[in-house]
Nucleic acid binder design. Structure first.
Lengths: 349, 349
DNA sequence: ACGTCGGGGCAATACGAATTAACGATGGGA
DNA sequence: TCCCATCGTTAATTCGTATTGCCCCGACGT
């Protein structure tokens, strides 16, 4: 009974160890925190006796009690405004998470997914009664769109956060702009580069299909395109019949279409084929995203590649910078790689 | 200054709220824990005053301190013996995680990924000094192979765990077998069913290619096949030249090959084609796994489908059963669906 | 007028580990 | 012999919240 290593109901504590070893709880704690100072103050015999009991019982310190005392929890939170692991095959988040995980591992941090956040009005919300944000030292925010008021509150209350994806400044106290820490993809730069190539190939009438507004990433793409081709035609793409959309584009004399979503490019490609047009001979298509949808694998789309894994990794880096107070610029924009593909070619003269 | 909602360095506590509202910390706590009993003890006016301060400051209770007092943390752990988010495109874990996440969400639990566990000798280990297992109420174990000694210790120490994938009993105290809670796929049953179909089609000489030993899932598959076709030929498949392996199989008169890994089936298919044989007319191929590799998407392989998402979901269910003490059978085996495919046909007569 | 009852609030304590201050015992030097 | 330093250990306190028990005060009954 005395040496039984099993523990039935109640968790085993340092007091239990102390009782068994015939010392005080403090001594047990001192043995565990193997400091050079503390270590010297414990007699080797006592130390060994305590360690023996610890080994027998398999005791490990309760991280909760420890965290309550220290400042840091060694936990990084991940908050997503959509399910982290979507049921659909198309998995956009995965590379981000892979990078986050890899970096967290080097730091010795655990990752906490805030799945407890309730869904209100269709989206998860961080702030609710008894939100568990404080379980983590800092938090990585993932999601195409982050509700403005949540982001504002996060920044204003001084939480250690970093957004994956660029975010506009938020309004905190009405005077100084609230800069949101982020690691984003340089959509604007990449889109500009693609536009320059299109122009170099001879395209004079370029269209942008997609929202082009609202979310920062959409705004950046359209801005990047317009910086090179100011007279870009802007068409919304969602919920439109591909054939009808294509007709509108052709009627406007468009020779190259920049699609916010690759899926739209695929749809346009299909519509073009149905109309007897060939891609890219008769129409060039460019994809400005990396979300895969049905058919995106079959079309060798000229597109940009988002450094998702790298973004995840660096977001954790920025988070640690914030936590440690090192550096003062918590905004990073990473370059996108360009996938040449085969859908961007000189226009038919 | 009095109503400033900002908090600079120190976290805001109930004592701060109490001070502002001119009440005691106890009162604040009572207001927050909105019990019918506690509520009656607070005058409506006081209650409203406290709530007002809470609203102004944006205070939320520290989940850590709360968890220290209560038994439950509302956190479920996920431990994987490989990276949770592998860099490769083939993502085997994803559906499991999706199921786990979905179920955890219904429970209002957060998910903790034990990325802090250090890698020793090539694999992560749960048990190390200052392991953080106790951060979670229970833990889901994910991974093809779980080190025997870790599993044994987990069961012996009575941790609330559940393995995704069937696990053999472990030896705890030498007398009663230590049953490992799990939610597994019924590899044996599914393989038997596939074998019955092969036999019904006329196959008399069937081969099993793969380890067939070691990991439970491999053992189960071979067992399932042998239950129907006792004289199954067993060949190891890893690290063998497909052409050489194929030759050995054909020399033995094999007409149907059950492959532990779909990738091996793809390789064999290629080797058969190179030899002028057709699949399935000259050789039937069956895949016994769902791991995708290069080429697996192109071959319409007859295979089994592992209910991964469902396994993830149910593993969390089992975990809650363990935590709440309901039910006494913590082992579930879920049926696998069969993907008909086009690589299993009657043998050439 | 005095005892009682109950509503309303607070002090005290616990949770588990870390840290500081302090205590007793021993030994050495003057 | 006395004092002080050193060593080994312990009591007390801290983190932030929840809970138990108790106290105070006003109202009511006799």
């Amino acid at each position: 009974m005395a040496g039984a290593p099993t523990r039935q109901g109640g968790r085993i504590t340092q007091r239990d160890i102390a009782r068994r070893a015939g010392v005080s709880q403090t001594t047990v704690s001192l043995v565990l925190t193997n400091n050079s100072e503390a270590a010297s103050r414990i007699a080797p015999a006592t130390r060994e006796r305590v360690l023996q009991v610890i080994r027998e019982t398999g005791y490990v310190a309760d991280p909760l009690a420890r965290s309550l005392l220290r400042r840091r929890n060694q936990i990084l939170g991940i908050f997503t405004y959509e399910p982290v692991f979507p049921a659909g095959s198309a998995d956009f988040y995965h590379p981000f998470l892979g990078g986050i995980e890899a970096c967290a591992e080097t730091l010795g941090c655990d990752l906490l997914l805030f799945t407890s956040a309730p869904v209100t009005d269709g989206t998860r919300r961080i702030f609710h009664e008894n939100n568990r944000l404080r379980l983590a030292d800092g938090c990585v925010l993932l999601g195409r769109e982050i509700p403005r008021e949540e982001l504002t509150r996060l920044v204003r209350e001084g939480h250690a956060i970093v957004s994956v994806g660029r975010r506009d400044d938020v309004d905190t106290d009405g005077t100084t702009p609230g800069r949101v820490p982020f690691v984003g993809a340089d959509y604007a730069g990449a889109t500009s580069e693609l536009a320059r190539r299109a122009v170099a190939l001879g395209h004079r009438r370029i269209a942008y299909v997609g929202a082009g507004s609202g979310v920062e990433s959409a705004v950046d793409r359209l801005d990047g395109l317009r910086a090179v081709a100011p007279d870009t035609l802007h068409e919304r793409g969602a919920d439109r019949e591909p054939a009808e959309l294509l007709a509108a584009l052709l009627a406007a004399g468009v020779t190259a279409v920049f699609c916010e979503q690759p899926a739209v490019a695929v749809a346009l490609s299909g519509a073009a084929l149905a109309r007897g047009l060939r891609v890219p001979e008769d129409l060039s298509l460019v994809g400005l995203g990396e979300e895969d949808g049905p058919g995106t694998r079959d079309l060798p789309l000229t597109r940009l590649r988002i450094p998702r894994r790298e973004m995840g990794w660096q977001s954790v880096e920025v988070l640690t910078e914030i936590l440690h107070g090192t550096s003062d610029n918590h905004q990073r924009l990473l370059p996108c790689a360009l996938v040449p593909g085969q859908t961007l070619a000189p226009p038919r003269t």
